[in-house]
Design a protein around this nucleic acid. Structure first.
Lengths: 337, 337
DNA sequence: TAAGCTTTTGCAGGCGCTTTAAAAAAAACT
DNA sequence: AGTTTTTTTTAAAGCGCCTGCAAAAGCTTA
């Protein structure tokens, strides 16, 4: 393992000069820097990031925590984050929680132990912030995609206006002539779920009056869960004419179930999703599009700004930004027959 | 920032004892360890992973490099890796190369600078191994999903038998009665591409004699690329009756193009993909399934083993393991009409 | 009670790097 | 030439932690 000492010996300078050469310090002569850098290549010297992080008390790594990297919703955000921070010299450690709150806390602790400069995360629950704070994690955090309502002034967040988006989705279905509209969405009590359900209920109540509670179904954010709920719905015999799904993955499961049971979409039942993941267009799913790349980019920039301010011992006012979702009309919704 | 020194002061022991308590050393009394651990919770002490890595000359982090995290093929592998190594106390840093060879080299350098214990990667090209070796990276590497043929004895690999899989896919189409079968696949000269093309050609030549070279089309592994190639094919007016796609993503693009141009699958044209990503079942795409979870798991275990051996200064014989792909019949293939 | 063990704890050096203060070298003045 | 100023380099301390060795404390046994 070649260290700074080896490079010092090889060039004839001391480690102090070598270090400066690698840190673009103006305190080394250009000729010296050049010679050092050239020799570094030759002998294969790569600065030890651990030693650097130790003395600098900060790394150029940013932690990213998501619930499920196999849901295409997240990789786009992760990639957008990576693309945004890379030009600033940062890299990422990505963690997967599998929707398990303990894993989320452990991940945050691990990231903090690695002294990441900051954390970007899609929180699992309203307890997330206090969980990781109580675990001793002290590092700038920006939420993306979801947030913890109880700590809105402790950490910034970037997400869509879920209430309004769900309202809009439901309105669209109503405008098509549907009246019996079900909601199949997330079962955890989070900001996103509360607002999507809230928007749905609000729209329904405005147009249909009291809501039939059996139309509100909760499940996990997986295709299997959507499939199960739809199958149960079919077995119950009291089908709605349209469904608002909590996200596209759930919608996929719902569609597959209806398909397997001989129903045709949108002829027999309409469905609208959330997120607009890549494959929704292949399947022709009408959905509320989240600007995920933009969310990732904005969240990353906000975190970078927060980190810079923290280094300068200023505290940046936290921002809770709501973006607009956009209705993407495709082939999964039609007027009831 | 609470350090080991603070914890030492708080408990009345020295940092040596505190350190031992955290490393499950048998040299601390149980009562002492307990007291220290309890106090650690109270004052929020989390060991600095950088300092640890520095003195131990090794971290419990494993680097993962993939070409495109937004292709659902990869997240499953990444997750499988994470799930496999976590019980061993390791965590991961995931890098995205965007199919750019320089980015791949930079990623490897970054991971090495962070002193990862090892790297798992799906290499972009046959140059990958020498690229990163020449960049000074000296760390155990295991390839997964693809490999560099020129360095088969330097690093282990886990992938499917691509030649045989492509052969099998083509045979299936032939058995359905197709004769004019096109291949739309990866354009880089990599192990995977050579073998998939080789398997296709081999099967075609066996049954149809000389191959019409215009049937062999190369493109990038994206949906857009597949779409373009299919559109060009349609414009050319000389359509095949069936297509072997380099992967499912390309197949999606191809299908979408045919769909948009008024063709029906499989009535007008059959198509078979590669990988069996999640959404292939939704779309009814017949495909050659890669056991990605198993590949990730095996690769991770192999890397772990390699790391252990390296620590013991043994060199583990490299293994190049080929798994079998499995033909998953769905609705995108039929006999030509 | 003292000697001989065993168990537990402390001291100190060092991992690879950055950085402040001081020294040396080079350049710019009288 | 000598002196001052500026540029370049070095010496040394320390970031938070681990660990070999030495010291201290607890236990046994005679």
């Amino acid at each position: 393992m070649v260290t700074i000492k080896d490079l010092a010996k090889a060039t004839g300078y001391t480690i102090a000069t070598v270090s400066r050469a690698f840190n673009n310090s103006s305190l080394v002569a250009d000729a010296t820097r050049e010679k050092i850098l050239r020799t570094a290549e030759e002998i294969g010297y790569l600065p030890n990031a651990l030693a650097r992080g130790l003395v600098n008390k900060a790394t150029s790594t940013i932690g990213v925590i998501v619930p499920d990297i196999t849901n295409p919703y997240f990789p786009v955000i992760v990639k957008s984050i990576q693309d945004t921070i890379k030009p600033h010299g940062y890299n990422t450690i990505v963690c997967n929680t599998d929707w398990i709150e303990d894993t989320e806390t452990e991940s945050a602790k691990m990231l903090f132990a690695h002294r990441v400069a900051g954390i970007l995360m899609d929180p699992l629950s309203d307890r997330t912030y206090s969980n990781i704070y109580n675990a001793g994690v002290r590092v700038p955090i920006v939420f993306v995609g979801n947030k913890t309502d109880s700590n809105a002034d402790e950490a910034s967040s970037i997400l869509i206006d879920n209430f309004s988006a769900a309202y809009q989705a439901t309105e669209y279905l109503l405008s098509l002539g549907h009246e019996r509209i079900a909601f199949v969405g997330g079962d955890e009590d989070t900001h996103v779920n509360r607002n999507r359900i809230g928007g749905y209920i609000s729209s329904m109540q405005r147009h249909v009056g009291a809501l039939d509670p059996s139309l509100l179904m909760k499940c996990r954010y997986t295709q299997e869960a959507g499939y199960m709920v739809a199958s149960a719905l079919i077995r119950s015999g009291r089908l709605p004419t349209a469904i608002v799904a909590g996200n596209d993955i759930i919608a996929f499961g719902v569609m597959q179930s209806f398909h397997n049971h001989g129903y045709r979409i949108p002829r027999d039942i309409s469905i609208i999703g959330f997120d607009d993941i890549e494959f929704s267009s292949n399947i022709g799913l009408t959905t509320m599009q989240e600007p995920r790349s933009e969310m990732g980019r904005m969240a990353a920039n906000l975190l970078l700004e927060t980190i810079r301010n923290a280094e300068a011992h200023l505290k940046l006012e936290t921002k809770n930004i709501l973006l607009d979702a956009k209705l993407i009309k495709r082939d999964s919704c039609a007027s009831p027959s």
